[in-house]
Write a protein that binds this DNA or RNA. Sequence first.
DNA 1: CTGAAAGCGCTTACAG
DNA 2: CTGAAAGCGCTTACAG
Lengths: 340, 340
Amino acid sequence: MNVTIIDVAKKAGVSPSTVSRVISGSTRISAATTEKVKAVMEELGYHPNLMAKNLVSRTTMTIGLLLPRNADEAFLDLFFSEVTRGILSQATRAGYDLLLKTGKSEQEELEAVTRLAKGRRVDGIILLQSRRDDTVIRYLLQEKFPFVLIGRDPERPDILSVDNDNVQGAYDVTRHLLELGHRRIGYAGGPLELVVSSDRYEGYRRALAESGIEPDPRWVFGADLIRQDSTAAVRALMEQPERPTALVVMDDLLAFSLLGSLSELGWSVPGDMAVFGFNDNPMSPVSTPPVSSVDIGVYQLGLQAAGLLLKSIKNEEIAERRVIVPHRLLPRESSQPPGS
Amino acid sequence: MNVTIIDVAKKAGVSPSTVSRVISGSTRISAATTEKVKAVMEELGYHPNLMAKNLVSRTTMTIGLLLPRNADEAFLDLFFSEVTRGILSQATRAGYDLLLKTGKSEQEELEAVTRLAKGRRVDGIILLQSRRDDTVIRYLLQEKFPFVLIGRDPERPDILSVDNDNVQGAYDVTRHLLELGHRRIGYAGGPLELVVSSDRYEGYRRALAESGIEPDPRWVFGADLIRQDSTAAVRALMEQPERPTALVVMDDLLAFSLLGSLSELGWSVPGDMAVFGFNDNPMSPVSTPPVSSVDIGVYQLGLQAAGLLLKSIKNEEIAERRVIVPHRLLPRESSQPPGS
DNA sequence: CTGAAAGCGCTTACAG
DNA sequence: CTGAAAGCGCTTACAG
């Protein structure tokens, strides 16, 4: 019922092989034949059946994106849509499609990935997170199936990955605050099982150490604490005799919560507490006060990841197996010294 | 090189047909045979080649999602990730995959959709927006290819669609503000070419009219104005002799901008101006003050759209061709009367 | 420059 | 309950 290559061949008075060659822009087809076949394709409204094409060419022109299963953190909303746009942009440019997959558990994720890989559903896969001893990564490695991780797997530094230098990012923010004269600087983030979180904590700690400052453990508190009861967390923080005057906050969303609680308790930002966030939420510039943040280039992460994956799929030379997307400090009012 | 159905058949001592039947859980295969074949599949690590399966079964078990091309508005970030999650959840449950597509122009979008439909790449498509005289919708209709629109096409009320009742939503918000005693109520939103925007404006206008209030045109201003220079827009608004005491705002992100400018100019919310937003941004409850909003159930929009599309693909009975996802007012501090 | 033939890995009437 | 055969719509050596 649908127009096939055979219909076109008949009508154009050539063989199916020839039509196929015209479609693929193959060599050595006469201009006359090419023109005739193209005209017939147009006339009949022919479009190649991608399934058939994929089956015989053993390639799908599709890459898979595995979504992290607990995507219920608001931060991930933004990350997800930006990174997807980056991936899609790069993939589309190269003629590739993007298939989305998710799983509710590690088991389901593994099944999904197995289906994609073994079922020849996609040519490569992008991962948005890695867990300790990640079975998905282990499987992909063992099958030698092309994949790229956005982030970092401390146990397998040699896999293809695209990431920020999160240690350096937090280091930069902390140094920035130190240079503004702050000595007692706190850190809000976590959980530390997440690589990104522990990396940022490490950068924070390192900058302080370089200045000979040993952070008081009471200056450091977890994201879950803030989410549960931000006001209680802030009150506990501010009641300390030696309370911090600045906070490095792992994500702007967290920073917004803290801002709300500080204001509720009558403290002013940046007067009583300077705040510097991460991930440059679109709301950060328009919040009250505007929140200082680190732009981590989420779109770029996606773009680069897709680029790297495509190289891997096509067996092209890969210069760096680990691509670092640069970050950028965006100081705004929430961390400005009073005078400026 | 990869294990095929033939390898399994040989090893199990049966025909390929039988293996195929075991895989599809077909009728009339003896328990003994089934067991034997399954054991061999397990042993050989067999996984069906999806391309081959799709080719012969003329079905892809995949649905396509077309992303709106100008997805650079921050609001869409949230909408996109939530709606995708809803779609993915429903699709995965039914054993379907999700393919993402985008185009930089209407022309590119049409080409993308043509490839998907004619190329038998997907079984159905979900659209996230419609334009006046939308060529993509016209094409899909003409090809009788299954699709669902999230939103509303005023020119084609009979297509499958999932949407909120945006007129009613804005009506409800405006009534809520009227009941709190406000008489001069403004509206911030637009552009009015977007159906969702004009629908909300219509609901706003209707509620006022019912109370015998004719809105002053100076109370109504566009989103672009706010994005360009929120403070100027707010100043102009507040300098009016008969300035509004409450604002219906088309999106929470817009509300955040307004909040910032109001605060900057020394006005208090809700004291000097009550604000009621839309789309319940995750930040709304934690902003200062917490922003009243309308939860439009984005996840549900995605879930229902996928459900509707799957019914259409399977030619199942469809009771309502237009599904309305209920909205919910979430009054917070930004619209509370001073005393409460 | 072009065609005939085999094959990609599966499903599905048709027989038995 | 099971098998042989044809076919899904394309590509790609192999010949000429």
